[in-house]
Design a protein around this nucleic acid. Structure first.
Length: 655
RNA sequence: GCCGGUGUGGCGCAGCUGGUAGCGCAGGCGACUUGUAAUCGUCAGGUCGUGGGUUCGAGUCCCACCACCGGCUCCA
């Protein structure tokens, strides 16, 4: 039989019974760290019989191997919790990105607190030290029900498969024919598909991270369980690396950078989710918006401007009051009318379209506005600038003739990607979200819209996946996600094809044949919201924004007081280029000034002294460089800086 | 909204079992005039998230609320 080693090499050995036997013959010392094998595309226990000619060894340090040991660690955690709190009901405990969790209901509705984590962890270490094997058992459904008679969540999982006629609930080890379970010593049994590491002794590099509430089956109307999150790795070093990465990610946290760089804050006096932007932060916003605005104007958009509140009747017509009342700020009564702060800009843009009769010659009509909207987000979901209650959308509504839809979407997606690239982002993925259960409209309309979106994605060439049932209630959509500098995924742009609002507002245009027809409408936010996009940029760049977006682009530090005149001359020269220049006067030591300015993440810190005055040079400290360049001719620096002062124009595909 | 946690001067922190708040940085002032990541001195600043309560006495205990952090749910 053929054995594929973790490093990808392979070798031929005589057929053997199971993974353990394979290891005995080729890795007697265990140096490969194999925790499971893959046979016929299925991952299985080392002890399971091998039915096949090819066996892949799965190392603990591989992604699949980590999944196995995280899952096993979750089991050990459940065992520990059941030992410490007899009578606990346990639900599910999967491996997740970087770790695992397990959901429990403690007897008497008791809840975990942070001290409990230490107790559980201690118990887990005992279980690991006692080297308990994970032994797989196969049972009939009936036996399974008996085995977990006192575990309601397990019973529900087993019964769910039978009742709903699902083929199987694979992740939990239940199929139509039977259930699988794993048993450790001490009598702990868990319903589980496996595979597991052979014994608890293979675990150890783990840490319990936090406790949280989580609804059973993700349904907030059902029990709220106590979820314990942990992380587990193949070695202590890997665990420490991970904890270190978490620390590094914390340094990029836009909420921290926002405070450190004096960009914005959230005054409690104003209210949760309502930021104020300080001068530097407001400047960055302005630069983002200004570039976006100019790019839109250069690409066939027209501006719109609309108020912040509107009568309830508008949102009755649009359907927002029917669908999203709970997330709208409450109404205000004035002169017998009821007004709401706007949660979306679309109804108002529609009114602009409808202000007079439209000809096919005007289409596509692209309206663009930085529209500030208010949404009453539930208190637990607020998250810095990434999730706020008052936000500004870079919002556009495009009205097209049905025949123009596909081409317009392709053009639009090209524009979106070009804009994101201009901000230095390059790693995109899209989701094509289809009709949800709760939705309105005719099936054929949804089909037309979904096809057009898919066409646009194909033309754009960005990778995409289908998100079935994830669309808005009125429209299918493309959500563009991006990966930042450390690989995290963020949702940004959204493109939605809306066939409902044109109908609800009875929109029309006069076509070339003099017939009145209904336009299609495309909703599109590109940044998503200015606030959220600001947050993403801060985290992506770890606060070191590109020169064109930096509040201060150049700081000049004269070596001593006598050099301030020359420093001023340099500043005048740079400001003439349009650069934002700050002066760092000589009343503290040069080293201290450089340190402060570098911590402010200013792209260039120039040092000018007697030598520079005599030679017409500057000392250049580029952000990110570990040593300064001295005696750089001012002309040379000016040429370099000029190239970075403004964003590059959008590279949009031709129409 | 739900679960767990946190809330001390602008920022980062200390304050044990309840006895009327302390440090560093930042800030003001003064001196130093400096060639590449923290010059020295000095001054000022908080009533301890907010409101109740227990107590002779509360930053320290209890209750409610607010905000924030980590999750769950949600995200038109």
């Amino acid at each position: 039989m053929l054995v594929v080693l973790p490093d990808g090499s392979s070798r031929e050995i005589p057929a053997t019974a199971n993974g353990e036997a394979v290891l005995r013959s080729i890795d007697a010392t265990g140096s490969l760290g194999v925790v499971a094998v893959v046979v016929g595309g299925r991952i299985q226990d080392l002890s399971a019989p091998i039915a096949g000619e090819k066996v892949e060894l799965v190392a603990a340090s591989s992604e699949r191997g980590r999944e196995v040991l995280r899952h096993s660690t979750a089991h050990v955690m459940a065992q520990a919790v059941l030992a410490l709190w007899p009578g606990t009901k346990f639900a599910i405990g999967p491996a997740v990105a970087d770790g695992f969790y397990y959901d429990f209901r403690l007897p008497g509705g008791e809840r975990f607190n942070e001290e409990d984590l230490a107790r559980i962890e201690e118990k887990m270490r005992e279980i690991v030290a006692s080297d308990q094997p994970f032994e797989r058992e196969e049972h009939s459904i009936k036996e399974g029900l008996a085995l977990f008679a006192d575990q309601p969540y397990k019973l529900e999982i087993i019964q769910g498969v039978r009742a709903q006629g699902e083929t199987e609930d694979e992740s939990e080890g239940v199929s139509v024919t039977g259930v699988s379970a794993y048993r450790n010593s001490e009598g702990f049994v868990d319903l589980c598909r496996g595979p597991h590491v052979p014994s608890t002794a293979r675990l150890g590099a783990f840490k319990l991270m936090r406790v949280a509430g989580a609804y059973w089956r993700g349904d907030e109307k059902r029990d709220q369980l106590q979820r314990v999150y942990g992380t587990a790795w193949e070695s202590q070093e890997a665990l420490e690396d991970y904890l270190h990465r978490l620390e590094e990610a914390e340094k990029r946290d836009h909420r921290k950078l926002g405070a450190d760089l004096d960009l914005f804050h959230f005054p409690p006096e104003i209210g949760g989710g309502l930021p104020v932007f300080h001068p530097k932060g407001a400047l960055v916003r302005h630069l983002m918006e200004d570039f976006s605005m100019r790019s839109h104007l250069a690409n066939g958009y027209q501006l719109a401007w609309t108020p912040h509140i509107a009568k309830s009747t508008l949102y009755e017509t649009s359907g927002h009051l029917g669908w999203y009342k709970d997330n709208m700020y409450p109404p205000m009564e004035m002169e017998g009318a009821t007004y709401y702060p706007k949660p979306m800009n679309c109804p108002m843009h529609i009114l602009i379209y409808r202000s007079h009769q439209r000809s096919y010659r005007e289409l596509p009509m692209r309206l663009f506005e930085f529209g500030t909207v208010y949404r009453f987000e539930r208190s637990g979901v607020l998250h810095g600038l990434a999730r706020v209650r008052g936000l500004t959308q870079d919002d556009s509504h495009i009205f097209v003739a049905p025949s123009q839809l596909a081409a317009e979407l392709a053009r639009l997606l090209g524009f979106v990607i070009a804009m994101l690239r201009a901000f230095g982002l390059s790693d995109f993925e899209a989701e094509l979200a289809t009709r949800p259960e709760k939705s309105v409209g005719a099936a054929e309309d949804w089909e037309v819209a979904t096809d057009a979106l898919e066409h646009a994605l194909k033309v754009s060439g960005i990778p995409y996946v289908w998100a079935e049932g994830e669309g808005a209630f009125y429209a299918p959509k493309i959500d563009v996600h991006l990966r930042d500098a450390i690989g995290r995924r963020w949702q940004v742009s959204t493109l939605q094809v809306d066939l409902q609002l044109p109908q609800l507002f009875d929109l029309e245009f006069v076509d070339a044949d003099n017939q009145r027809r209904r336009p299609y409408m495309v909703h599109r936010a590109l940044f998503g919201s200015v606030e959220r996009f600001f947050a993403i940029l801060l985290e992506h760049y770890a606060g070191a924004l590109p020169t064109w977006l930096s509040p201060t682009q150049v700081a000049i530090a004269p070596v001593k007081e006598a050099n301030e005149g020359y420093a001023d001359q340099v500043a005048v020269r740079l400001r003439a280029l349009g650069a934002r220049v700050a002066m760092a006067p000589s009343n503290e030591p040069l080293g201290a000034r450089i340190r402060r300015l570098k911590m402010e993440k200013i792209p260039y810190v120039l040092v000018v002294g007697d030598r520079d005055l005599a030679a017409g040079t500057v000392g250049v400290n580029s952000r990110g460089a570990d040593r300064p360049e001295t005696d750089v001719a001012l002309d040379v620096f000016v040429a370099r800086l000029s190239a970075e002062l403004a964003p590059s124009p959008l590279e949009v595909p031709l129409d």
